[in-house]
Amino acid sequence: MAATKHTLVALVEDKPGVLNRMASLFRRRSFNIDSIAVGHSELPHLSRMTIVVNGAATMVEQVRKQLDKVIDVVKVSDITGDDVITRELALIKVHATASTRSEIIQIVDIFRANIVDVAADSLTIEVTGDEEKIESLFNLLRGFGIKELARTGCIAMNRGGSSPLRIEEKLPRFRNEKRKAP
């Protein structure tokens, strides 16, 4: 079965080891995770994860079910094919000389990206967008010489009012307990 790109989003309890538990399910099936992005969600004590993997649809569905079985995973959904917004942030440090600097700045402007650091022989560019946009900017800059690249990995959210991660039940523990200072 052909491998295709899948985007999974998950709400998970903010506890040590959760990432490990989830990653282990992919590792066991020799899935290569394209990207994984984790951060706080709108609910205290719950983190939101976006995982992008390549795999056959049936295998991804099997992993999704296994992820759902992880006790610390509150909800997980495969949003591939949904109407979603996906964004990623990249920092690109590109080789720049006096003669190439203005050309780079023009390209950056076209992409509505920002220059966040300037040095004698380099420019650091911050760009946000979907994967395609970042890829095309990267490809245009490649000719100047890329010194460094850092990407956050994709985060995703459904358009409109619907959310595959909405939690119906009340979560008293999360509402009443205050986040402990570390």
């Binding site: 610390d72 509150v74 999360f174």
Partner: peptide, 14 residues
């Protein structure tokens, strides 16, 4: 520590 055995569990992911 103070001991009181909880009467129920709260596992939103389970």
């Amino acid at each position: 520590a103070e001991f009181s055995y909880p009467s129920r569990v709260n596992l939103p992911g389970y």
